[in-house]
Design a binder for these strands. Structure first.
Lengths: 329, 329
DNA sequence: TTGTAAGCGTTATCAC
DNA sequence: GTGATAACGCTTACAA
């Protein structure tokens, strides 16, 4: 591998000049610039990232900490993060935290070791509460989940409004016995629940039942199975992510119930399967790609201007009313 | 951040000794060892990765190049890769190549810049053909897709056998007009097609029709729609990945055809949706987590023993016969 | 406008 | 067994 010294030798200048040219500094003569670029081309020179990192105490890498890459929401977000990051010359470290605060802490330490330029992070409720973004030497952008600390950048959904909108839709279509299924580790689940409760309250409909559980298909399956088998079963299931909805779907099938006649199903995130089943599933679609994109853009701006004031981007979900919540007749 | 110098000062030894202790070298006195560990704990010292990389000319990072992280197959594999890699002290760079040879080349160069310790890679047909793994300074492990070059490690499915098994299942259940839908950029699709053809030949059934296309839902949708609308429609669809199958599913719905009475559907990869639709989809399930796990283990061994002879791990798919290919009566 | 040289934090060679 | 020191490849303050 050619180093900056080789380029300098080839171009007949010093390494300082090569570095200046490559950094696009203005105080370099046109002649030197030309010769340097010529040498770079000839030697197929590419700067050594480790050396740059060591020197600058900051790498051209960003960390992406999500709870589970198998969740289609995070998959879509990751895709956007990677696209935008690479476009801007950054690489992406991907880490799965499994909603485990210990793993989150471990990975945040790893991010320090790596001298990452910044982190995009979706914290558990527990970690979010004690998050102090100022203790890190790199900026942090929160996605999907908020934190009490307000001076941190974030890209979020208006979760209370979205939950309320989805609940209103169920109420308008005649459902009254709405069972709520929420991810317990995520602040987002709690916000969406608040929206549900608000809608119920406005409509003067009493809360029916609910379960908090891990955001996994199996957990959703078990919770809904229990609810369906109870003496007093619900007429609609309100879930807060696509994994829980998939689990609910399994339980409903297993009980041989018909959607929406026997039971309605509504959730969040426009996963592939929601339009492949019949009837299709009503849900709040999040602008996933946009979330990843905004978060990464925000992060890169923050890296360039550390003193910039924090901003939170609040995006709106979109209700996609489909067959699974058809009006009761 | 404490550096090795701080630790050396605190422990009253030289940086060389600290380095030796941390590397687990034997030629260090017990006394020095104790003092160093004490200092490390006290200062919460963690070695700087960039400095290590620069010095060793190799980082504790592995690259993972997949065609699209939104494909559930790669999601599952990525998850396994990340788990095993972190377990062994490596971080993972994730890159989406979009089946674009230019992007593949670009990312492979980036891997060089990053001094990665190794790469797990799923090449397009085009890149696989001209792949020369020896030209890279790091080992490469192929997954999912083979390459003509034989002296490279790989973790693969027995694709011909799997394709044949799936086709035999269709034939046994009475389907004769089997339309094949293959990913065009992947050698894997071609192998599975070979299995289909072999099964047809053995059963003395003439090939019916086929399309090669991008491995995307929309592409699968269009290809199947065309086939279904033709004067001579198929009685079964044979697809080679879950994205194409999802597209096929949409087209079948849109034509208001009933599975399996009007048309059967069979594919690869046990994506979530395949058991949520009714009837459930017959497919060859790949041991995705195992693939990622084996690939990463192979890579790490290779990093440690570069001269080790190349080995290919061939895993078997598992036919999950479900409702979408029920026997014709 | 350009070059010299220090220094980022490690590891490993060499001398003791 | 241990320590001083060179080297990895880069950026940048300072000097010219």
């Amino acid at each position: 591998m050619a180093s900056i010294k080789d380029v300098a030798y080839e171009a007949g200048v010093s390494t300082a000049t090569v570095s200046r040219v490559l950094a696009g500094k203005s105080n370099v003569s046109e002649k030197a610039r030309t010769r340097v670029f010529g040498a770079v081309d000839k030697l197929d020179y590419r700067p050594n990232r480790a050396a740059q990192t060591l020197r600058l105490q900051r790498s051209a890498t960003i960390g992406l900490l999500v709870s589970d890459i198998r969740n289609p929401f995070f998959t879509a977000v990751s895709r956007a993060v990677e696209d935008v990051a690479h476009e801007a010359g950054y690489s992406v470290f991907l880490c799965n935290t499994d909603e485990d605060p210990a793993k989150e802490a471990m990975y945040l330490k790893l991010m320090i070791d790596q001298d990452v330029a910044g982190v995009i992070y979706s914290p558990t409720l527990q970690s979010a509460e004690k998050l102090d973004a100022t203790q890190f030497r790199f900026p942090i952008i929160l996605i999907d989940r908020d934190a009490p600390q307000t001076d941190v950048d974030a890209v979020l959904l208006d979760n209370v409004a979205a939950g309320e909108q989805l609940a209103c839709h169920l109420l308008q279509n005649g459902y009254r016995r709405i069972f709520g299924l929420f991810g317990q580790e995520s602040g987002t689940g709690h916000k969406r629940r608040a929206g549900l409760l608000r809608a119920l309250h406005s409509a003067d409909v009493p809360p029916f039942g609910e379960t908090f559980t891990d955001a996994r298909i199996e957990a959703g399956y078990e919770a809904v199975l229990t609810a369906l088998q109870s003496a007093d079963p619900p007429d609609a299931i309100f879930t807060t992510n696509s994994l829980l909805a998939a689990g609910a779907m399994r339980a409903i099938h297993e009980q041989s119930l018909k959607i929406p006649d026997d039971i309605a199903l509504a959730g969040f995130d426009d996963a592939t399967w929601t339009t492949l089943v019949q009837p299709q599933i009503t849900l709040i679609a999040q602008p996933t790609y946009e979330i990843g994109q905004s978060a990464t853009e925000l992060l890169i701006k923050r890296i360039e201007q550390p003193q910039r004031s924090a901003r939170r981007v609040i995006l709106s979900g979109k209700l996609l009313a489909r067959g699974s919540t058809q009006k009761l007749v």
